[in-house]
Simulated assay, not measured.
Amino acid sequence: MYDVVLLTLGSERDAPGGCGSGGACCGGAAGVAGDKPGADPERCDTPRVPVLACAEALTARGARVETVTARSDAEIDEVLARLDGPPRPDGLTWPDPDSKTRLVVATASDAQLRAVLRRLVRRYAPPPSRRPADLAGNRTVPDLPPVGVLPLDPARSTGHRDLAAQLGLPRDPAGVAAAVLDGTPRRLDLLRNDGGSVTLDGALLGAADDTGRPLHWRGRVEVDDVVLSHGDEPLLACAVGNAGGYAALDDVTLLAGPDPTDGVVEVAVAVPVVSRSTFGRKRVRLEVRRARGRAVSVLPRDEKVPFVDDGVEGELSRKRSWWTEPGAWAVWAV
């Protein structure tokens, strides 16, 4: 018999990043500052229909179910502590690989799922000075505990495809319950960055004007030792892909084949190239340059570059690096 915690991210009414101070609500992304979850108190203070239906399906199968609404990082951490393993001789906090407690995250957006994974990384990543011998050489975190993903919009089929849809995970509460109790962990790559956060799907750097036309910006983009842009030419966009949510910009394919299980990050930049015809007419074509590797860095040459990372909006004003943690996190899948 399993203990299952159904975690919903609720409102932080008076905290930075909450609904009252610029954080997004249930239907949108988590707050930009610290990836803190935001929520609409009218919609999120009580368990919604998918959460109740999933709890009923789990209970019917004999699981002990608890529903928790976390309104702060500290409350998320209280839930994640239940996944801790026994004390280690080195004193590190480590996940229990044989835990009988399973976690389901009810998500209105990928940003909310990312907020939970960010706390998992903070909980279990050892400081560099205490790196244990049993940690894989290509990782800075151990295997994170698998999570079940319960989309709060099960019928979502248009617009941006969320990560659950990309991974082919069940969207109905009964299917999620079956995956959590009968499924197996599907291990996925995780992108960490030097800003202290994580990326599950991907990031898109760049902006558009009020009419939707992309704006030019400049920046040095480097993947391992391959330079996609030196920073002295205009860029329309830069996509950093773990999965495929940011693989295209309008009708332009940026990422050729992002795969969250291949151990590398795929990066692309879109560069407008001006040429002239035989008759001297100016033509502009879009050149897409791509590279794959272990890590990517973006150094903006302009003052601020807008970006969207797993649905969270922000502005990049200094160098940002992402690197791949192969197979670091996992979802329950059938």
Score class of each variant (00 low, 15 high):
residue 5 V to K: 00
residue 10 G to C: 00
residue 13 R to M: 15
residue 14 D to M: 08
residue 15 A to G: 14
residue 16 P to R: 05
residue 17 G to L: 06
residue 20 G to Y: 10
residue 22 G to W: 14
residue 31 G to R: 00
residue 43 R to I: 10
residue 44 C to N: 00
residue 46 T to V: 10
residue 50 P to L: 09
residue 51 V to A: 08
residue 54 C to T: 10
residue 59 T to G: 15
residue 61 R to F: 09
residue 61 R to K: 13
residue 66 E to W: 03
residue 69 T to D: 02
residue 70 A to T: 04
residue 78 E to D: 12
residue 83 L to T: 13
residue 89 P to R: 00
residue 91 G to M: 05
residue 94 W to C: 12
residue 95 P to C: 04
residue 100 K to Y: 01
residue 104 V to I: 15
residue 104 V to P: 00
residue 105 V to M: 06
residue 108 A to D: 04
residue 110 D to K: 03
residue 111 A to H: 02
residue 112 Q to N: 00
residue 114 R to L: 04
residue 115 A to P: 01
residue 115 A to W: 01
residue 120 L to C: 12
residue 125 A to H: 06
residue 127 P to D: 11
residue 129 S to A: 14
residue 129 S to R: 12
residue 138 N to F: 08
residue 139 R to I: 07
residue 144 L to K: 07
residue 144 L to G: 09
residue 144 L to P: 07
residue 144 L to N: 04
residue 148 G to T: 03
residue 149 V to D: 04
residue 151 P to N: 12
residue 153 D to T: 08
residue 157 S to W: 08
residue 164 A to W: 10
residue 170 P to F: 13
residue 175 G to F: 05
residue 189 D to I: 08
residue 191 L to C: 13
residue 191 L to R: 02
residue 193 N to D: 15
residue 194 D to M: 13
residue 206 G to H: 11
residue 208 A to K: 13
residue 209 D to Y: 11
residue 210 D to H: 09
residue 214 P to L: 06
residue 218 R to M: 13
residue 218 R to A: 13
residue 220 R to C: 06
residue 223 V to E: 04
residue 226 V to Y: 02
residue 227 V to M: 07
residue 229 S to F: 13
residue 231 G to H: 06
residue 233 E to K: 10
residue 233 E to Q: 11
residue 234 P to W: 12
residue 236 L to S: 08
residue 237 A to H: 06
residue 238 C to G: 00
residue 239 A to R: 03
residue 241 G to N: 05
residue 241 G to I: 10
residue 246 Y to H: 08
residue 246 Y to P: 03
residue 248 A to C: 09
residue 249 L to I: 09
residue 250 D to A: 15
residue 257 G to M: 09
residue 260 P to W: 00
residue 268 A to Y: 10
residue 271 V to T: 14
residue 272 P to D: 10
residue 273 V to N: 02
residue 275 S to L: 06
residue 275 S to P: 02
residue 275 S to V: 12
residue 282 K to M: 14
residue 283 R to K: 14
residue 284 V to F: 01
residue 285 R to A: 15
residue 288 V to L: 07
residue 292 R to N: 04
residue 294 R to K: 07
residue 296 V to H: 02
residue 296 V to C: 09
residue 299 L to Y: 11
residue 305 V to M: 14
residue 306 P to K: 11
residue 308 V to L: 12
residue 308 V to Q: 07
residue 308 V to C: 14
residue 309 D to Y: 04
residue 310 D to C: 10
residue 312 V to R: 00
residue 318 R to N: 11
residue 319 K to D: 05
residue 322 W to T: 08
residue 324 T to H: 00
residue 327 G to Y: 02
residue 330 A to S: 15
residue 332 W to D: 11
residue 333 A to Q: 10
residue 333 A to L: 08
